[in-house]
Simulated scan of single mutants.
Amino acid sequence: MQTLVLCKPDAVRRNLIGEIIRRCEQKGYVVAKLAKLVPSRQLLAQHYLEHEGKPFYEPLMEFMLSGEVVAIALEGERVIEGFRALAGSTEPTLAAPGTIRGDLGRDWGTKVVQNLVHGSDSDESAARELALWFS
């Protein structure tokens, strides 16, 4: 089983890619594919399709277009739920210690929460997102 993990622009800017991958590998997951890129607006529009029209959509797009992203196809048994537990709450201030967001993230007072990582939330979204980022 695979999931998409994105190290968002804030993680890349803060040089946290290695630490994020280390935590995934330490958990026993395998990096099957990895790409570092500046995503296009078209790719992000497809990725965040379900959020189009919501108040946070444009600030989210602006943030995700602000720099490089590392896309990872992460592999392992129950990797989708496992990575989401490893990532922690999407709100870094409330994320539990020991999680990626709890240990490394914080609220920077920006228009949209910069929370370091994205992880697919289901088998269906993982398949769709992996196809988008690794076509």
Rank of each mutant, 00 (worst) to 15 (best):
M1S: 13
Q2T: 09
L4D: 04
L4Y: 08
V5I: 13
L6F: 12
C7N: 02
K8I: 08
K8S: 09
P9H: 08
P9D: 09
D10Q: 11
D10P: 11
V12S: 08
V12T: 08
R13M: 11
N15V: 12
I17C: 12
I20N: 07
I21W: 10
R22E: 09
R22C: 10
R22G: 13
R22N: 14
R23S: 01
C24R: 09
E25A: 07
K27M: 08
G28N: 05
G28L: 06
Y29L: 06
Y29F: 15
V30M: 06
V31W: 04
K33P: 00
K33N: 13
K33G: 03
A35V: 14
V38N: 15
V38G: 11
V38L: 14
V38K: 15
P39E: 07
S40E: 10
S40T: 15
S40C: 11
R41F: 07
Q42D: 15
Q42S: 14
Q42I: 11
L43A: 10
L43E: 09
L43T: 14
L44Y: 12
A45F: 01
A45W: 00
Y48W: 12
Y48M: 11
L49P: 00
E50H: 12
E50L: 05
E50S: 12
E50P: 01
H51T: 07
H51S: 07
G53P: 06
G53V: 09
G53I: 09
K54S: 13
K54W: 03
K54A: 03
P55L: 05
F56P: 00
F56V: 00
M61G: 03
M61N: 04
M61S: 06
E62F: 00
E62K: 14
M64F: 12
L65C: 02
E68C: 10
V69I: 15
V69L: 13
V70E: 10
A71D: 01
A73M: 00
A73T: 00
A73K: 00
L74A: 02
L74R: 00
E75I: 01
G76Y: 06
G76H: 08
G76D: 07
E77N: 08
R78Q: 13
V79S: 01
V79A: 01
E81A: 12
E81C: 01
F83K: 03
F83S: 02
F83C: 07
G88F: 07
G88E: 06
S89C: 12
S89Q: 03
T90Y: 04
T90I: 11
E91N: 15
E91S: 05
P92H: 06
P92N: 04
T93A: 15
T93M: 12
L94Q: 13
L94Y: 05
A95K: 02
A95G: 04
A96Q: 13
T99R: 10
R101Q: 09
G102I: 08
D103Q: 10
D103L: 11
L104W: 13
L104A: 10
G105I: 10
R106A: 15
R106K: 15
G109S: 07
T110Q: 12
T110C: 01
K111N: 11
V113W: 00
L116R: 09
H118K: 08
S120V: 08
S120L: 06
S122Q: 09
D123P: 12
E124M: 08
S125Y: 05
S125M: 03
S125Q: 03
A126W: 04
A126S: 13
R128S: 06
E129T: 04
L130A: 02
L130N: 02
L130M: 03
A131L: 11
F134E: 05
F134G: 08
F134C: 06
S135A: 15
